[in-house]
Nucleic acid binder design. Structure first.
Length: 636
DNA sequence: AGTTCGTTTTA
DNA sequence: AAAACGAAC
């Protein structure tokens, strides 16, 4: 049924051929124009980091090669406005249809996974149990097209996309030795993992430098392989091992699937709480007095905190863009609980440096660590890096690899050199405070400081509540107000050797909430985070935007006709990032009614029907309830 | 079989 | 610290 019809298939975070519903639909409908639009400015603060851009570059090249072998090629556009670029492509190709997938790639649609009352889950375990006990399986993966009829590209030239500058090329060259982006490598990685390390997953997952993780995360981030395919293949293995009575295998599968589930949950959470990369999900956490100390932040980034496991992790991250999940937890927990720096800074740093940087996953991870989720770590619990060191790196191999200055220290002291006798240090060539720092802050000091901070948080929360009950407008907890301040800049990672000194507690500044770090020079600095790009939102009057781009359609596949141009949506809303920031305002307005006034851009007609099966009213009241419900948690 | 004790885990 | 799990009684 091609009949000369031509569709645009807009690739976004689905850079694959197989199990790509939008591509399949385009191919079925006739000729196809495959498009990728590079519009990083639309991500606001979250301009992708160096390694992430490197990956994207490689995987796009790979996709292009594949498309060429199938009969077309990838049209690339550099843009600051994806929608106008799309329209340009429509005009220059005469396409009459547009297909694109969700930005979230999930096993089930978010609105399918609810409790008995139809409400979204607020804890992971319940969410995941529900996913695993759904009466029907996730959609089976689609096969790749055998051939693609190309639309007319003669009047639709590609832009050359620039993903790295000269200074980045050198560092990026190394990445290619360890990683191979692209859907076919993703497939290979998946099969290798399933047939290899997966059985041992449960045994090996505790080791800091284990090479037995799946290494799928960057592939999944860019959609080079669909979760449904991962899930399917793993489930097959699971059935086999269950029949064989392979206990280790079964346990491994469950654990691996759980980590897939966490990725699911991160998207689910972002869907139900679009601001979850910006704000704690537990209401009272917005009163937490984070420590704002750029020296702390710098010491952490440079791996000079004086805690070997933390420092080793941070050096590995900087050197390779990779970190084992355990170590991510260690460095993040240290960041939040010991240093008490605002978690969003840490999250932003991960975003800038991780090869598999993923806003949804990282937001969930940081919130979990920070204790800002209903089911996260205890707020007042501090993980002791020394003990964790002996747990995850019992022989100190990991530390020695990344901290050569400690390499000659015996294992007995490797995770707490500050306790080592002078003679031992001397023999190992370690001079604390000189070639390796003393602890930036003692764990005991951190513990009491944390207690105070929590106390202060509850006091402020109470004060704010009292003020609200009096009808007085609270200014105290208004995280969007004047307490925000610009973020410390770091553009390059200086590796200077100045000793880190302890900060006297009196020097510590605390603020209620922080702007996300804006460390890339690409960003327009004057932008507040609230200057959401409303291009995609309904109610925006910009004439060139097809009005039905952002309708909250709830069926899995729905079509609409408008002005002769058909737009087919695959259970999509609009790009998640943009949506995410747009919807944040929705929640704001439900929570602190008057704090909006100072913010730009929030007057536009917001509230797209984000969760279609639950009308907008219920989605905002749910958020309210969520915060309200849980604000009392943990007080006991 | 049911209880208890110890261990492990903790999104 | 608590809960879930599992082994032992």
């Amino acid at each position: 049924m091609s009949g000369g019809r031509c569709s645009i298939v807009w690739f976004r975070r689905d850079l694959r051929i197989e199990d790509n519903p939008a591509l399949a639909a385009g191919v079925r409908a006739g000729a196809v124009i495959a498009v990728f639009i590079w519009a990083p400015e639309e991500e606001g603060h979250y301009y992708p980091g160096r390694v992430s851009r490197w990956w994207l570059k490689q995987t796009l090249a790979h996709l292009d090669i594949t498309l060429r072998s199938l009969g077309t090629s990838l049209v690339t556009k550099r843009s600051t406005n994806s929608v106008s670029s799309l329209i340009e492509v429509v005009k220059s190709t005469g396409a009459t249809q547009l297909f694109f997938n969700d930005l979230y790639d999930l096993l089930y649609e978010p609105w399918e996974i609810t409790d008995v009352d139809g409400r979204p889950f607020a804890t992971f375990v319940d969410f995941w149990n529900k996913c695993l006990s759904m009466p029907y399986d996730p959609a089976a993966p689609l096969l790749p097209p055998k051939k693609i009829i190309s639309g007319d590209l003669s009047r639709c030239p590609s832009d050359t996309l620039v993903f790295e500058d000269e200074s980045e090329k050198g560092s990026n060259a190394l990445l290619a030795r360890a990683w191979s982006p692209g859907w076919s490598s993703a497939d290979k990685a998946l099969t290798n993992f399933i047939n290899g390390p997966l059985v041992e997953y449960s045994v090996n997952r505790k080791k800091a430098d284990s090479a037995t993780t799946s290494f799928l995360s960057p592939h999944l981030h860019f959609g080079e392989v669909s979760v449904r395919k991962v899930f399917n293949l793993v489930r097959i293995k699971q059935v086999i091992w269950a029949n064989e009575g392979n206990k280790t295998g079964e346990e491994s599968v469950n654990l691996f699937l759980k980590s897939i589930g966490l990725r699911e949950y991160s998207r689910y959470t972002s869907f139900n709480h679009p601001c979850s990369h910006e704000r704690p999900l537990l209401g009272h956490l917005k009163f937490f007095p984070w420590v704002v100390d750029e020296n702390y932040f710098k010491a952490w980034r440079q791996g000079r905190t004086g805690y070997p496991l933390v420092d080793a992790g941070m050096r590995e991250l900087w050197a390779t863009g990779w970190l084992h999940d355990r170590i991510r937890v260690v460095v993040a927990s240290f960041f939040v609980k010991v240093l008490q720096l605002p978690w969003r800074w840490g999250m932003k740093y991960f975003w800038d440096t991780l090869l598999d940087a993923d806003l949804e996953s990282d937001a969930l991870g940081w919130q979990y660590i920070s204790g800002t989720l209903p089911d996260g770590r205890e707020l007042d619990h501090i993980d002791n890096p020394q003990f964790e060191g002996y747990k995850f790196d019992p022989k100190g191999e990991y530390v020695r690899r990344w901290l050569p200055e400690l390499s000659r220290l015996p294992t007995e002291w490797i995770h707490h050199p500050w306790d080592a006798p002078e003679s031992v240090l001397q023999a190992a060539g370690v001079e604390l405070g000189s070639n390796y720092p003393l602890p930036i802050i003692g764990i005991d000091a951190a513990k009491s400081r944390l207690q105070e901070a929590i106390l202060e948080m509850w006091q402020r929360e109470a004060a704010s509540r009292a003020a609200a009950e009096n009808g007085t407008e609270e200014g105290l907890g208004d995280s969007s107000g004047s307490h925000r301040f610009a973020f410390p800049q770091y553009v390059q990672m200086e590796v200077e050797r100045e000793p880190i000194r302890n900060n006297p507690a009196t020097m510590i500044q605390r603020y209620e909430d922080q702007m996300v770090p804006s460390m890339t020079s690409f960003l327009r600095v004057e932008e507040e985070e609230s200057s959401v790009d409303f291009r995609y939102l309904p109610g925006d009057s910009r004439p060139e935007v097809p009005a039905n781009l952002d309708l909250g359609l709830d069926s899995r596949r729905e079509t609409s006709n408008q002005g002769g141009s058909q737009i087919v949506r695959y259970n999509d809303t609009f790009p998640l990032f943009n949506a995410t920031r747009g919807l944040q305002d929705v929640e704001d307005s439900t929570e602190s009614s008057s704090s909006n006034s100072g913010r730009k851009g929030r007057d536009g007609g917001l509230v797209p029907v984000w969760s279609p099966s639950a009308p907008s009213a219920s989605s905002s009241s749910y958020s309210e309830r969520f915060v309200g419900e849980n604000s009392g948690l943990g007080r006991s």
